[in-house]
Design a binder for these strands. Structure first.
Length: 185
DNA sequence: CAGTGGATGCTCT
DNA sequence: GAGCATCCACTGT
């Protein structure tokens, strides 16, 4: 079942947990979400924590939209905006199990090993063709398609990857036992 | 495997 | 001028 925008009008931590096992497609290319991280509005590690800027503007917009930013000058990272307008919280999509159109991912990634297609936020954006052009777009319309998980999933948690501030908060969520995560939990 | 360092561009101090 | 919500190539076990 396709996720409606109201799905995102809730605590970013609830949404993050329920996104594990959901399916994400961009122009028909994608797979099952196996790893995400939550960033809430009181979180020193969140881009919106110090207020609105040109980069993070879509994080302050309506929930159910994409927030895409450039990381380390080289990669793109995709987030789903949550909670409410002007409350800057978002879920970072960190890894997928590729299921649809692996041929497109292989071509975009320039690699043959499916394990390297979408196991990391920068990798999955490259595999799905996501760039700053998708920043601010609604998640319930083309090119995006997000389907709710088919069942309850066993979700494991751990500290988030690659941050220095608030590094102890266990707001990384993963599908238990999945071999498609960016790193073990 | 684990650890290190470079690429690369934008944001904020 | 520092610091990134990263990835890859390369080194050394």
């Amino acid at each position: 079942m396709k996720l409606r925008r109201g799905f995102f009008d809730r605590s970013v931590h609830e949404v993050a947990r329920e996104l594990v096992g959901a399916k994400l497609l961009v122009d028909g290319v994608g797979g099952t979400i196996v790893e995400v991280e939550a960033y809430d509005h009181e979180d020193p590690a969140a881009h919106g924590y110090r207020g609105r800027t040109a980069r993070n503007a879509s994080m302050f917009g309506a929930p159910g939209h994409a927030y895409v930013y450039r990381s380390y000058g080289v990669h793109w990272c995709l987030n789903f905006v949550c909670e409410a307008e002007r409350i800057a919280s978002a879920v970072l999509i960190r890894a997928l199990e590729p299921t649809e159109r692996l041929d497109a991912m292989r071509a975009r990634r320039g690699l043959d090993d499916p394990r390297l297609f979408c196991s990391g936020p920068g990798r999955l954006c490259q595999a799905l063709g996501i760039t700053g052009e998708q920043d601010g777009l609604p998640l319930d319309r083309s090119p995006f398609e997000v389907h709710a998980r088919a069942r309850e999933e066993q979700v494991i948690t751990g500290p988030r990857i690659g941050i220095t501030r608030a590094a102890d908060r266990p707001w990384r969520y993963g599908l238990a036992g999945s071999k498609w995560v960016s790193r073990p939990f």
